[in-house]
Design a protein around this nucleic acid. Structure first.
Lengths: 202, 202
DNA sequence: GCACTTCTGCATCGATCACTACGGAAGGCG
DNA sequence: CGCCTTCCGTAGTGATCGATGCAGAAGTGC
């Protein structure tokens, strides 16, 4: 476990678990859950397989923790987008953040929550479902934010929060796929600008 | 090889190669390139590994042929969309076809060209690049179609064919991700209808 | 210093990976 | 029929998969 309760204490860990998790996240981000071998993970983490298992449990648990780190790290633009005062601001910040994170030069291209396990073998089904839940949860949070916007009169009377949330998340996931295909950020920004020029699509 | 030149003839193949390829495509579609094991493939194809290698070469070649079959089969809506007389018709048919194919009940959810190998290990890099090329090629073909539409006055003067092509393909890829997450077709259709209501986003 | 707990490196586990060598079986063609 | 080519089932290749057993090393608290 990584949560140290009290200090029954023995030999302290000889590596920085936080930094190791960060590096593991980058490997998962680039190669996906099943495409990232234990050898590649532990090599990037700078520790042995034994140490990894002692600190994180197993590969699946390591991925869970890496995904949590991704959600509160590279993908934290979602939270900041939701805090925007207007629905248009939410959509704008969401797409801008998605493009920035999925096309950053110093890091894997694409989105861990999308390409981490979009399709998988039977042994990777749990992780695949975990990411599907993460994506759907993101959509739900945006939908609730848009519902509030509708209540506040921030959206036209005919606008459906559910449809709008599905629309912006579809664009965001599509951007992640484009980024994984090597499309550069500038082109995606021009596309997002055009899409937002007709916001909201009612 | 599957191309039979003349008939030097010996014992004829004991299985339908076309049907076997169709079943292999479905397995790749559902589990991705690396997530589909040879055992799962040959089991679904109803043949032994020996027969598969004799007929298709190796796993990578089998995937290439499965992807070709996908492009001319489940994904042939792209060609029909490009033949639409208007840019709006192209976008409409493209999104409708994407939704229909990625959410069909009798088949894997999502798009083989997207989830087949969005992220992969080093050994799957070639296939990943193959699919990235397929996605970018799809975007280019739509872009050329939109360029023609612009020349014909089918698009407003300010409309950029490249931006519009990137926009509709981003929506299509995003739809594929949503479908892989279990989102139903009706919800995606409502979203696509809303998006097309403001076409083109200039 | 001593006992205790934990970490770590080495070696390895069985399972599965993609892939193939081999030999008998089965059909086309003379 | 007999020959020849090809197919196919069995069995097994080395490599790699995720995951561990073990024993010694290294700290902490008394």
């Amino acid at each position: 476990m990584e949560t140290r309760k009290k200090s029954p204490s023995g030999r302290p860990r000889g590596f920085d678990a936080d930094q190791a998790l960060e590096r593991a996240m980058l490997v998962f981000w680039e190669h996906g859950y099943e495409g990232a071998s234990l050898a590649a993970l532990t090599d990037a983490m700078g520790i042995s397989a034994t140490s990894m298992y002692a600190a994180f449990g197993n590969k699946q648990e390591l991925f869970r923790k890496a995904m949590e780190r991704y959600a509160t790290g590279p993908s934290d633009y979602l939270v900041r987008a939701l805090e925007q005062p207007t629905a248009r601001g939410v959509a704008t910040k969401l797409l801008a953040g998605t493009i920035r994170t999925t096309t950053r030069p110093s890091g894997p291209q694409g989105c861990l929550g999308v390409q981490g396990a979009l399709a998988a073998s039977d042994s990777g089904r749990e992780v695949r479902d975990l990411l599907a839940d993460w994506r759907n949860d993101s959509c739900c949070r945006i939908q609730e934010r848009f519902r509030r916007a509708a209540d506040e009169g921030d959206l036209p009377p005919g606008a459906d929060p559910a449809v709008l949330a599905r629309y912006v998340t579809t664009l965001a996931f599509g951007i992640a796929v484009q980024a994984a295909s090597g499309v550069c950020g500038d082109e995606l920004r021009a596309m997002a600008d055009a899409a937002l020029r007709t916001w909201p699509p009612v």
